[in-house]
């Protein structure tokens, strides 16, 4: 009679490979705990990962539903990330001067391999304006601006304005007919600012003796454009605002916004 042999169940190469990998020092130095397949690790993953820790560990079921949030806030954020990424790529190729701006944009299409980042940047920008509006719409329709979320609604309104300004300043950069005339039409409004625009009501009252304080070369529009028309000064100002100042401010406000979503008790819901 032959001895009964016990046969070890063979693990597949893939599983063995995975086990080996997750036990290496490199892996364990990055991930401090096992995969979030049990409750303990589901808590740990939220607490130890800087990107995930914006989330709570658990949340109300309705708050996860697309039906409730439409994921519009999340999409606005994804689009913002997308725009930051493609925007940085564009900055490699683009020089904000009258001499180069237009030809750099044309060159993007003609000389850069896989050159769809200008498209991605432009369409994502349009899309972000729409998602931010719809996000505001959803927040309104669920009454989520009501106490204790009044402040976060206001942070949102400012980000909405910044989103529009980002889009507006970016519109000028290709320096084609579409760009300068859209910005001309838009910025002409500033000329009519009460008191501060030289064609605004009351501006003629601001005078020291005979000297007009507000005139075409010293008014709200001039401050915006760095000139009396959309020219070199405007291009540089819009470039700096678009690539540096506004993204920094909106990024900062997003941090505040997300933090407050958590601190105001997580996603809103019936009390």
């Amino acid at each position: 009679m032959a001895d009964a042999k016990t046969i070890e169940p063979q693990e597949s190469a893939l599983v063995r490979g995975w086990n080996w990998l997750t036990e290496t020092q490199i892996w364990t130095s990055v991930f401090r705990h096992a995969a979030p397949i049990n409750d303990r690790n589901r808590v740990l993953v939220m607490l130890s990962n800087v990107f995930l820790h914006l989330h709570p560990v658990r949340l109300k079921k309705h708050g996860v539903r697309l039906r409730y949030t439409w994921c519009m806030g999340g999409l606005s954020f994804f689009l913002f990330l997308n725009l930051t990424f493609t925007g940085v790529l564009l900055m490699f190729y683009y020089r904000p001067t009258l001499e180069y701006a237009y030809s750099d944009i044309v060159g993007l299409r003609e000389h850069v391999p896989l050159g769809i980042m200008r498209e991605m940047h432009r369409w994502a920008a349009h899309a972000m304006v729409i998602t931010v509006w719809l996000h505001m719409f959803r927040v309104f329709m669920t009454g989520s601006y009501k106490p204790p979320r009044e402040f976060n609604w206001n942070v949102g309104v400012i980000m909405l304005v910044l989103t529009l300004l980002l889009s507006f300043t970016g519109y000028l950069l290709p320096w084609d007919q579409l760009a300068i005339w859209a910005i001309t039409v838009g910025s002409n409004m500033a000329r009519a600012t009460p008191f501060l625009g030289y064609e605004g009501p009351g501006a003629s009252l601001l005078a020291l003796g005979d000297v007009q304080l507000i005139h075409a070369a010293a008014d709200a529009r001039f401050a915006l454009l760095g000139g009396t028309f959309v020219g070199e000064g405007a291009l540089l100002r819009f470039y700096v605002l678009h690539c540096v100042a506004l993204p920094l401010v909106i990024g900062f406000l997003m941090a505040v916004h997300f933090w407050r979503v958590r601190k105001d008790g997580g996603i809103s819901g019936p009390l």
């Binding site: 979030p36 409750d39 589901r42 993953v45 939220m46 995930l52 989330h55 709570p56 560990v57 658990r58 949340l59 109300k60 079921k61 309705h62 708050g63 996860v64 539903r65 697309l66 409730y68 994921c71 999340g74 999409l75 994804f78 689009l79 997308n82 819901g269 019936p270």
Partner: peptide
Amino acid sequence: IEKQESDRVWVWPDLVYTELISLILCT
């Protein structure tokens, strides 16, 4: 309905996966 669905679920996987799928679709 929001009240009926106010029991709590885990963010991992319920929310994280929704976000991931939205991110991929959006991209």
